[in-house]
Design a binder for these strands. Structure first.
Lengths: 228, 228
DNA sequence: GCATGTGAATAGATTCACAGCG
DNA sequence: CGCTGTGAATCTATTCACATGC
């Protein structure tokens, strides 16, 4: 899918060594999370079956997904947890860290700015930006909110790779355009608006109201089935 | 995908009149949003081509998606905007309103509690809940935060249909269990944790770090291609 | 023996292309 | 004629089932 999830638009295929299916890419972070948990308990190896159980997927899927990365397992034994962790991290580009800018410092922007878990794994919020002059200068954690107009300078100084849009819907496309123009080539959009970006820019979206509406669909189905 | 979430786990198929593919269900909210925008400009009909362009998908996909709902278009003309709006709303269960409870009133919970857009379309936040006694009683908008222990009573009183989990990862599974136990059968999980629910409960997730990691993958690919 | 890795089979989603109808 | 609705073709993803190799 999503796609998903959530589903969402994708960047171009790129051309690394192997061609990894989109659906697999979307599951790698899931495996990563499970492996981190397993690693804490000093477990040395893990079978596809166990990993599948933890991730809530089918064991064959785990094996096929991992096989796209290479033959990192040992037949009759399983996968070395630490080694697999490293390989997945590397594949996901988490061995380097990516400077992130958050645009739109309202309720959600605040929450994102304070979110621990950026730093943990390869992402570092280097700037907070808002179009509203009255918010500029506000201190949040270690950062001070800067003006949207400064985006090109900020992006260049900090080599921003990823932009997070947390503005109202109406501003989202403009902000996306500015991000792209400033050289940011990965965008995560939280605004409830459809935005478009040029080829070569990755765009993913997180949309609360869409998720709720999908839940509503299935909720209604169940209610309907019960009633009939 | 997903899924999608952006990709995410689904509820059971249910058995309404028609069997609507999951991928289609995930796009209906998108069409709905586009149609709402079009409706404001007093446009009476819309072609699949135009709608596709707005939604950023292929026209054939729009037609096929809409055909699962019924034959609501007119050949040679297009779709009546108002009529289609109504049909999609009905299909998504948005003609009734769904009481929502938000569990976990930290940064994110606050942001969600203040989010306008719940009320707009069929969702109504009826309760805010937290396990931390020091947060109980805090006033947010029109609601006062209540204790997690009161969840069963709240769910029953308010006929809560949808639970939103905005707790830290460690608490997510416990909260999910409590929600299910209290009779909530749709859950939207924002916590960066894998949770499981029984058959008959829909679960979707919104996971910032997964989305960032997916972006990181494609970002790295592009960087790699440029470098080589 | 046992769990991986992978071709083959199946299922699901997208796109094509055109018949059908207003 | 124009645009919908939809079978057929294609592409993508999932699952099966077993040969392979530690």
């Amino acid at each position: 899918m999503d796609e998903g999830g959530t589903g969402s638009a994708e960047g171009p295929p790129g051309r690394g060594h192997r061609r990894i299916p989109e659906a697999t890419v979307a599951r790698l972070p899931l495996y990563l999370r499970c492996l981190l948990e397993v690693a804490e308990s000093k477990t040395v190896t893990i079978s596809s079956e166990r990993l599948a159980e933890m991730a809530g997927v089918n064991a064959a899927k785990v094996r096929k997904d991992l096989s796209y990365l290479g033959s990192y397992g040992t037949r009759g034994v399983g996968y070395d947890v630490e080694y697999l962790l490293f390989q997945i991290s590397r594949e996901l580009g988490l061995t380097q860290d990516w400077p992130v800018v958050i645009v739109g410092i309202g309720n959600l922007g605040h929450a994102l700015a304070n979110y621990r878990g950026f730093g943990a794994r390869g992402f570092r919020v280097v700037a907070l930006v808002d179009a509203d002059g009255s918010k500029v200068g506000e201190q949040i954690g270690e950062l001070r909110v800067r003006h949207l107009e400064d985006l090109p300078a900020i992006a260049a100084e900090e080599s921003v790779a990823i932009g997070v849009i947390a503005t109202p819907a109406g501003a989202a496309q403009d902000v996306a355009d500015r991000l792209v123009h400033a050289g940011v080539s990965s965008i995560l959009n939280f605004a409830p608006a459809l935005i478009t970006v040029p080829e070569g820019v990755s765009l993913r979206k997180v949309d609360l109201s869409i998720e709720l509406q999908i839940l509503s669909f299935y909720q209604q189905r169940r209610a309907g089935v019960v009633a009939s």
